[in-house]
């Protein structure tokens, strides 16, 4: 039981805070990048897809190595914490941006045109017409992203971030009790992420049924 207490009191907070910070980075960058995917210029849309594809196709562990080991010679000393936050935030921003871009399809082009014809600037159209409508459909992906990040944080054990996996490894080396620690890690991860995964599913079903109601043609 000591193992569980140790891991939960010391390592789980690290996992959670890194996930939360990386989630914020991913949300901000991903929202900006995703909105570019709704641009009327083809080149911008293609650029958005290329960037998000590269971010999504990059192994997360490599992104962490790049920041942690790669940039020290260039005067940027990342701690394990900041390297993980930035690396995971960047790679997940790719997924975020695709989620955002996907929801843009839910806002009919006609509404943007209507906004423009009322004299709104592009920024105002996004602020007052597009964004309010994509917040709700983004709830499930946003939550899902946090769950995914919690699992991805385990990769940071490779650069010595004292999250769950790294602390578990330290515990193994200290006590020579390997299998109990492995089981403890699995149990903690299952107990923490499983309810969240089901919550994602519930939110997804709810927003899906709502969006089918709202997509009923009213005026056209």
């Amino acid at each position: 039981m000591d193992i569980y207490l140790d891991l939960i009191s010391k390592a789980l907070p690290v996992t959670l805070s890194v996930s939360a910070c990386a989630w914020l980075v991913a949300a901000v960058l991903g929202l900006g990048l995703g909105l570019l995917g709704g641009s009327r210029h083809r080149a911008v849309r293609e650029g958005q897809f290329f960037v998000s594809t590269v971010l999504r196709g990059m192994p997360e562990v490599l992104a962490i190595y790049l920041l942690f080991f790669g940039l020290t010679d260039y005067g940027m000393d990342f701690s394990p914490f900041s390297a993980t936050v930035v690396a995971l935030g960047l790679t997940q921003a790719g997924f975020w941006s695709e989620a955002v871009r996907g929801t843009l399809d839910l806002v009919p082009l006609r509404q943007r045109e209507a906004g423009q014809s009322l004299g709104l600037s592009a920024l105002q159209v996004h602020r007052h017409v597009v964004l309010p409508q994509i917040v709700q459909p983004l709830l499930a992906p946003a939550l899902n992203m946090f769950v995914a990040l919690m699992k991805l944080t385990a990769i940071a054990a490779a650069v010595g971030l004292p999250e769950l996996l790294h602390s578990g490894r330290a515990e193994m080396d200290r006590t020579y009790q390997v299998i109990p620690v492995v089981i403890a890690l699995a149990v903690i991860y299952v107990v923490v992420t499983l309810p969240l995964t089901h919550l994602v599913g519930a939110v997804e079903r709810r927003s899906r049924s709502r969006s089918t109601q709202e997509s009923m043609p009213v005026f056209s």
């Binding site: 699992k151 944080t153 385990a154 054990a157 578990g168 193994m172 390997v178 890690l185 699995a186 499983l194």
Partner: peptide, 14 residues
Amino acid sequence: SIPLPVLLAGLYFG
């Protein structure tokens, strides 16, 4: 629910 790094480490070290 189990992250891949944890699964790999568990299989290998455990």
